[in-house]
Design a binder for these strands. Structure first.
Lengths: 287, 287
DNA sequence: CTAATAGTGTCTGTTAGACACTATCTA
DNA sequence: TAGATAGTGTCTAACAGACACTATTAG
């Protein structure tokens, strides 16, 4: 029993409708992707930023990113930008973080940006390279520390540093915890030498929250270490993301459920042998 | 010490740059918002869908939503659509779910859609009303049940039903759990009488995952009950979102940390008195 | 030598989960 | 009367967290 094609109020089938369809003249926003690429090196969380060489926010530090091409999916745009603005593309995990759509976030025009959270092991990083729209690129350490706490308002300091270039960026982040709601406001600290472009301080703050929450229930820590790692390395990653020291014995007990020990080639005489592990969600017990 | 305004390579200040800036001729995508508005009624999870009266996907069931106006933020667009396509607007919680940006998700043109997850207590719902682009609107029960499980592939059935209108929509959802990755594919079941428009089956699946995960670590269940509720109502919400029965005594023990008992007006003689509670994140112990 | 890292065992207080008991209301 | 819902107490196995002990390496 052949189904009749459906016709709309003008009597058109879908095929006919699409053939005559002209995109409307409504003004459309531009869409970009931003990438928050994190790694952990020397026991510190680091984020890749680029210094803008064009208006707006000329000279400010910004997340790498760019316009989404009309024939390119969001994920494809992220991959392209990763290749263009960093010189690493493989072994980078990413997931969507949040889409920022405030009307005035770009002074030029309406721009909606889809922010992605990216993770890669430090061993994967070579040299920073300035991209098309950047005069410079650098890895900044990221830290969020509690400044003070008073009746329902938490005040944090979000500090980004690049010691190699003597750079220092600092924002004050306040969350007001009203009932069933959460309001955040963010302001540049007067002491800060440099600024972040657009609403990027907010996306960085969201990324930190995501990392901190997600590390306890999803295997994201394994995207920040090489495929084979020691439990010491892995523990350091957890400690940095959670912002607290962990007991070694207890950490090892809980993490054993997710890793499998890897066969070592041999004991190269006088060298100390440290156990190597791989991620394995099925490793419930044993080994 | 007054700071000199920065000038770009053409010698323009930011102000001058913005004054002369002309948005480029690059083609831009359209941006829409979709709303997955859930409620829980009669012990069942329900989702609001509308039947499309225009191409494409004429006659298919779709998530309420629409184009984002150029002078309107994403959140504002969600509020507007909620008011237009449902006749409730207050007491609806919503949060961003995911942004879908595949190139071919709309056959007319490039459309990127930002999906929002909405929750509201059943007591807040009046009558469904068809909106501008819809010939009908209805609440569908949503269920995701395991069909079978074989070597690393889970196959689920996603079933949407509207008993009042005799409607039945069913999709098969498979997740392949490869190492550190998760691939999902979704196909309409041949037995299904109706179809979902666009990639909406996928967003519904994502919403169910989000609800199921988030209910255990965030107070979202409280957005699905009235401000004052019995622990029985609340437990039902948890059970529906988690898809499993819970032990009453244990549930009450764990939930006590988040609720405060509300003073009852009086015991209206022969009527049974059931304790009422309110959400209160600070209620650590006592009462 | 000391300091740092690695690997493991043990004790305790808390809690998740299973289950039992009682009371009240509806059909 | 049976069956559903409400409210609470108890027992146990599992686990998180604190801490102690040992071994190996770099400086």
């Amino acid at each position: 029993m052949e189904q009749q094609p459906l016709r709309d109020k003008r009597g058109l089938t879908e095929e006919e409708y699409l053939a005559q369809y002209k995109p409307s003249a409504y003004e459309r926003p531009s869409v970009t992707v931003d990438i928050l690429l994190f790694t952990i090196q020397d026991g510190q969380l680091k984020l890749l930023l680029v210094r803008r060489k064009n208006h707006p926010y000329l000279g400010c530090w910004a997340l790498p990113g760019g316009f989404v091409d009309i024939h390119e999916s969001l994920d494809a745009a992220v991959c392209r930008e990763l290749a263009e603005e960093t010189n690493l593309a493989s072994d980078v995990y990413f997931e969507q973080l949040y889409t920022f759509g405030d009307v005035d976030r770009d002074p030029r025009m309406r721009v909606i940006t889809c922010a992605y959270l990216g993770l890669t092991p430090a061993s994967n990083i070579r040299q920073t390279q300035a991209g098309d729209d950047a005069q410079d690129a650098a890895w900044f350490t990221v830290e969020k520390t509690m400044a003070y706490q008073a009746d329902g308002v938490n005040c944090w300091l979000l500090t980004l540093r690049c010691p190699e270039k003597g750079l220092h960026i600092q924002y004050a982040v306040k969350d007001h915890a009203e009932e069933l709601r959460k309001v955040t406001d963010i302001a540049l600290c007067p002491s800060s030498q440099e600024k972040l472009a657009f609403d990027h301080a907010r996306s960085i703050d969201m990324a930190l929250q995501r990392l901190r929450n997600k590390v306890s229930y999803a295997p994201i820590a394994f995207r920040l270490v090489p495929r084979q790692f020691t439990l010491g390395q892995l523990q350091k990653v957890y400690e940095v993301l959670l912002g607290e020291k962990l007991d070694r014995a207890n950490f090892r007990k809980t993490v054993r459920r997710m890793v499998r020990q890897v066969e070592q080639p041999a004991a190269p005489k006088g060298r100390r042998q440290v156990m190597l592990f791989r991620y394995d969600p099925l490793a419930q017990a044993g080994n």
